[in-house]
Design a protein around this nucleic acid. Structure first.
Lengths: 228, 228
DNA sequence: CTCGGCATTATGTGCAGACATAATATCTTC
DNA sequence: GAAGATATTATGTCTGCACATAATGCCGAG
């Protein structure tokens, strides 16, 4: 059967991709489309809202809906927990806590978390393994204020997973980049110094309070992939 | 004022992040929540649908809504056109078409596009500049079947932009990785061979027909960033 | 006890109507 | 003609109702 909001979304997308409605032009109002398709305005609204979320059209009150001039495609990436990512490849996950100490953070880290550089934070180095091979080297700065009185045993449960279980659904930002392996990264991952590594950096807050900053140096060959 | 779907979403998120509703448990039905918040079921439904899209809860008919056990965060990346990306930094965009010829694609490219390796494709090399400095080196394989009889003038309009204007809103996939600069990439970008480069690879289809495969080698320092 | 069909139930979608909101367009005044 | 007040209008949201859909879990036949 036809007429659902998904069909309407598909039809509108078709008219846009065939240039029937070229980039930049106003498309008919919800009411006009509802009449054309013989459905309620809410149904058209739902379809157009989804297209707006995908970046295909831009909507503004009173101004109407227009085809996006610059098709800024939005891709959604899934950011899984490392253990899960390893297991999804059919490999066994393991990890070693290489270092855990209190240190004053370097200035870039402190500023990114919005903390004074003198405040000592927990500094943790963890190496994650896939089938015993180095998979990703995690260096993490952790705000001690968010930890309970007794420090959890991070040799048994990875910091990552402790965090998602205990301070989950915080907000933050992620950045991806490439960098040559530092001496330490080369040593731990077993690659040559300067080898191209995929780097994920993530900082996390909860209600204005900084929680953690983590840098993941992935072993060579790592890719992050998604469909558009 | 309170009571909108965004407030309900926030309240549900609060109950989840404070473990009032721990991971894995069923939360009350839409109807129950609607009664509690004194609103219509559709309003609760809207809030929960958004949370499901964000990966915070999982919903199944009849089974109900439960807090996601493994918080697979979803981050949305914006994939702009290169010119726009350069201009957003306040820099001037320019580009040079370095090569344009018909070649049989190497096997990995052909297989990724689902074409026979013998079919010659267009092979295009473009260097994008930001304020005259190398910004990204684009190597592209283009299916000639989708081009018009007369080849567009890609020295005036970048291939990228010709594509988004003419075969926009196709589907495809994107992958990010890191790799050492090849000899050619090092030469064109003006970096040392083996320098760590951020690589974006993208293949595009339209209705089962392969359109293009493009590899972007970004100049050092490039980051892709988003909020969660 | 096991297997298969059926009733139950929470979500998914749709409709018609209403009011809120924001931005544009128009009108008024100087 | 320019600046500010006002009317208009398309989208944003909500309500209350209805039916569709897909699992679940119960129940009965074997």
């Amino acid at each position: 059967m036809i007429g659902g909001w998904e069909d309407i979304r598909a039809e509108v997308l078709r008219r846009i991709s065939t240039q029937e409605w070229p980039a930049g032009v106003l498309i008919p109002t919800e009411e006009a489309l509802a009449q054309e398709f013989g459905c309620a305005r809410a149904t058209v609204s739902r379809a157009l809202r989804e297209l707006a979320q995908a970046g295909v059209v831009e909507r503004r009150r009173k101004a109407g809906t227009r085809v996006a001039v610059l098709p800024v495609r939005r891709a959604t990436l899934e950011i899984p927990v490392i253990r899960q990512e390893v297991q999804a490849r059919g490999q066994a996950h393991g990890f070693q806590l290489l270092r855990a100490e209190r240190l004053a953070p370097p200035v870039p880290v402190a500023s990114r978390l919005g903390l004074a550089a003198q405040d000592p934070l927990w500094y943790l180095e963890t190496l994650h393994l896939a089938d015993g091979q180095p998979f990703v080297f995690e260096t993490r700065w952790l705000n001690p204020a968010i930890l309970p009185a007794v420090m959890p045993d991070f040799t048994a449960l990875s910091v990552n997973e402790w965090l998602v279980k205990n301070v989950s659904y915080a907000s933050g930002d992620i950045a991806f980049s490439a960098a040559g392996a530092t001496a330490r990264e080369a040593e731990v991952l077993g690659v040559a110094a300067g080898a191209a590594l995929f780097i994920t950096e993530r900082s996390t807050w909860r209600a204005e309070a900084a929680i953690t900053f983590v840098r993941l140096a992935h072993a060579p060959g790592y890719r992050v992939q998604t469909v558009v």
